[in-house]
């Protein structure tokens, strides 16, 4: 009996980190984002930047799906004419980082505690007002989430996180993977 590829329904499965190298042209982000939207793939985070090669951009997409969804995402992305390379980093040894800026309440009596937390997490205070600190922290997802949890009791006024970015360990590059 032929094996049905997917019965549809809920998108379960693990989180994947996909790196997409694309031509650095206007409209490419719309092509990639549009593909995710119209084929019903969930995007957990997305980061876009220039690369070592000015003619190329790099997108790091974190998405959730089973093996079927990931296979389709990879193949459908590869079909876009402006996509140079798609690589799923999930099962490779890689380094992932996010950056967060957190504006937290810092009344005078509690400033010392917060500064200790900042030091433990190797974060840094990049702005101070009479009542707040703005803290910058980088790290993997778990670290930033843990830091956020610890700051929450002081009162987080505003928080912004970049999408995740990732590189494979060692000398290998996305273009070679």
């Amino acid at each position: 009996m032929p094996t049905i590829a997917s019965k549809g329904g809920q998108q379960l499965g693990q989180q994947h980190t996909i790196t997409i190298l694309v031509e650095n042209r206007p409209g490419v982000l719309a092509r990639v984002a549009g593909l995710f939207a119209r084929r019903g793939y969930n995007v957990d985070s997305l980061a876009v930047s220039i690369t070592e090669d000015p003619t190329m951009s790099r997108m790091t997409v974190v998405c959730t799906g089973d093996a079927y969804i990931l296979d389709q995402i990879t193949k459908q992305l590869s079909k876009l004419v402006d996509v140079v390379k798609v690589a799923d980093y999930t099962d490779m040894p890689m380094m992932e980082r996010e950056l967060a800026l957190i504006k937290v309440n810092a009344e005078t009596p509690r400033r010392g505690e917060i500064m200790q937390l900042v030091e433990i997490f190797r974060a840094s205070i990049i702005d101070i007002s009479e009542t707040t600190f703005t803290v910058e922290v980088t790290g993997d997802v778990e670290k930033i989430s843990a830091f956020e949890q610890l700051l929450r009791p002081y009162g987080i006024r505003e928080l912004v996180r970049t999408g995740r970015i990732a590189l494979v360990r060692g000398a290998r590059t996305a273009a070679q993977s």
């Binding site: 032929p2 094996t3 049905i4 590829a5 079927y68 296979d71 389709q72 193949k75 459908q76 590869s78 079909k79």
Partner: peptide, 8 residues
């Protein structure tokens, strides 16, 4: 992308 889209 057609390989495995509906049937494997």
């Amino acid at each position: 992308a057609e390989h495995g889209k509906v049937y494997i």
